[in-house]
Amino acid sequence: MSKRMAILALGIWAGLTAAAYSQDTKNNPKPEAGKKPSVVLSEIESRPDFARLDSMSWKDKGYYEIEYRTTDKARVEINIDASSGVAVDQD
């Protein structure tokens, strides 16, 4: 392979990689795009059976993954859509 062909191939590869990365980051919403974590957590804490928070984390698919305990010690796992604040079924 000539030097020019190698440079051309590298340029094409770099362009495709950048485009794929750009597309991938556009499809992954950021937490800042929706409800603040404090607002989501406040809504969870206001549930009548809420006892304590075990964990809360952001998932790149656009939802918060929350685990908490109820007053009867049951463990609840729930995913809350960041933009709407509604529970969603996600993996």
Rank of each mutant, 00 (worst) to 15 (best):
M1Q: 08
S2H: 12
S2E: 10
K3H: 12
R4Q: 11
A6H: 10
I7E: 02
L8S: 11
L8D: 00
L8A: 08
A9C: 11
A9I: 09
L10T: 15
G11E: 11
G11I: 11
W13I: 14
A14P: 08
G15E: 01
L16R: 06
L16I: 02
L16E: 01
L16W: 04
T17L: 08
T17R: 10
T17F: 09
A18C: 04
A18D: 01
A20I: 15
Y21V: 14
Y21W: 13
S22V: 11
Q23I: 15
Q23G: 10
D24Y: 14
D24K: 15
T25E: 04
T25R: 07
K26M: 07
N27L: 08
N27W: 12
P29R: 03
P29Q: 02
P29V: 03
P29H: 03
K30S: 11
P31Q: 05
P31G: 09
E32N: 09
A33L: 15
A33G: 12
A33P: 07
A33D: 10
A33C: 11
G34K: 00
K35D: 06
K35P: 10
K35R: 14
K36A: 05
P37I: 09
P37H: 05
P37S: 03
P37E: 04
V39H: 01
V39R: 06
V39S: 08
V39I: 04
L41C: 15
I44Q: 02
S46G: 02
R47E: 05
R47W: 07
P48I: 09
P48R: 13
D49C: 14
D49Y: 13
F50S: 04
F50D: 01
F50A: 03
F50I: 03
A51F: 13
A51T: 14
A51Q: 14
A51I: 10
R52E: 09
R52M: 04
D54K: 13
D54S: 07
D54I: 14
S55R: 12
S55P: 13
S57G: 13
S57K: 12
W58T: 04
W58P: 02
W58C: 03
K59E: 01
K59P: 00
D60I: 11
D60H: 12
D60P: 13
D60N: 10
G62N: 03
G62C: 00
G62Y: 02
Y63K: 02
Y63C: 03
Y63R: 06
Y63D: 04
E65W: 13
I66N: 00
I66V: 01
I66G: 01
E67Q: 13
E67R: 15
E67F: 10
E67G: 11
Y68V: 02
Y68L: 03
R69F: 12
R69Q: 05
T70C: 02
T71G: 09
D72V: 15
K73M: 12
K73H: 06
K73R: 03
A74R: 15
A74G: 08
A74H: 14
R75W: 12
V76F: 06
E77F: 05
E77W: 06
I78A: 02
N79W: 07
I80E: 00
I80M: 00
A82I: 05
A82P: 05
A82M: 05
S83G: 07
G85T: 11
G85F: 07
V86K: 02
A87T: 13
V88W: 00
V88G: 05
D89S: 08
D89P: 06
D89K: 13
Q90E: 05
Q90M: 14
Q90F: 02
